[in-house]
């Protein structure tokens, strides 16, 4: 495991912002950390990076205590938007960051190239668009070729093309074996690029599994006439208005059964909950 937490909790006064979160990120995976705004994602990440001290519970990052130089030098991070000196150019900002990380200056150019910012590297950071700032933040996170990349809402402020580029970059990094902890509230993004996800709501981790497992089994949607007769004929079916939901069914056998019983089959198609539906179900219930 690259990251493990055990009952990690952060309280401000009586309010638990993060409440007993136990999660694990495996080496080489892209782990999506999902949750609505204010759910506790960023506070959890801040605890993993040592910016915020937990009230209780434990966490290990790459086998080390969070926030120690041993851990931080092996982690690249972008938390809640990039923090850079506005009067320095993008390149100089990365040089400053590289000096802090003890990384050779040549890596700055590589990182700029990776996020497609070489052309604007000489411009002052304050003149960058939000998307360029975000990409510079990712470039900073890539310096030193960290074992773990922690990206908190990396596509914030990016236009659709920029978002696609960022997803492609994360995919490419994952393909090279890079472990990524990606926090987001953009479900499509997570669904597309993450191997596993943790869902947090009101400070509590309400689910942790693969996207497939979270979305659950595929059910068959059957529209037939008369629907009541079909409901009686198909064992285990659930009637939802004027359609049936059938789990673990052999489609061919099901259609034959209905047709032999003189039921008109109007529509049969697989139906699967989207991650969005699962997310709202979980976070609404939490």
């Amino acid at each position: 495991m690259i990251v493990t937490t055990e009952k990690l909790t952060k309280r401000y006064g009586d309010r638990a912002v993060v409440d007993g979160v136990s999660l694990s990120v495996r080496r080489g995976e892209v782990y999506g950390f999902l949750g609505p705004n204010g759910a506790g994602k960023t506070t959890t990440i801040r605890m993993l990076l040592g910016l915020v001290k937990p009230t209780s519970g434990t966490a290990r990052v790459l086998g080390e205590a969070p926030g120690t130089p041993k851990a931080l030098l092996r982690v690249g991070s972008l938390i809640e938007g990039p923090g850079f000196y506005p009067y320095l150019s993008g390149r100089d900002n990365l040089r400053v960051h590289a000096a802090r990380r003890g990384v050779r200056a040549e890596q700055v150019e590589t990182a700029l190239e990776q996020v497609d910012l070489l052309g604007a590297a000489g411009e002052k950071f304050r003149r960058y668009s939000l998307g360029m700032k975000q990409r510079l933040g990712v470039a900073a996170a890539l310096l030193g070729r960290p074992e773990l990349l922690v990206l908190d809402e990396p596509t914030n402020g990016l236009d659709p093309a920029g978002m696609a580029d960022m997803r492609e970059l994360v995919r490419a990094l994952a393909a090279q074996g890079q472990t990524v902890l990606l926090s987001s509230h953009l479900l499509g993004e997570v669904e597309e690029i993450c191997d596993r996800v943790g869902v947090i709501a009101n400070g509590k981790l309400v689910a942790e599994s693969t996207v497939d497992q979270l979305r659950g089994d595929t059910v068959l949607l059957v529209r037939a006439d008369p629907i009541e007769k079909a409901h009686v004929l198909v064992e285990g079916s659930e009637l939802h208005g004027d359609v049936l939901h059938v789990r673990e069914a052999d489609t061919g056998a099901l259609v034959r059964t209905l047709v032999h019983a003189d039921v008109d089959v109007l529509e049969v198609r697989p139906l699967r909950r989207t991650l969005e539906e699962v997310f709202f179900e979980m976070t609404g219930a939490a």
Binding site: E80, G81, F84, Y85
Partner: peptide
């Protein structure tokens, strides 16, 4: 500017 956040997650204690 948020640069303390960047500094404190860069590696040094």
């Amino acid at each position: 500017w948020g640069t303390w956040k960047t500094t404190l997650t860069a590696g040094p204690s």
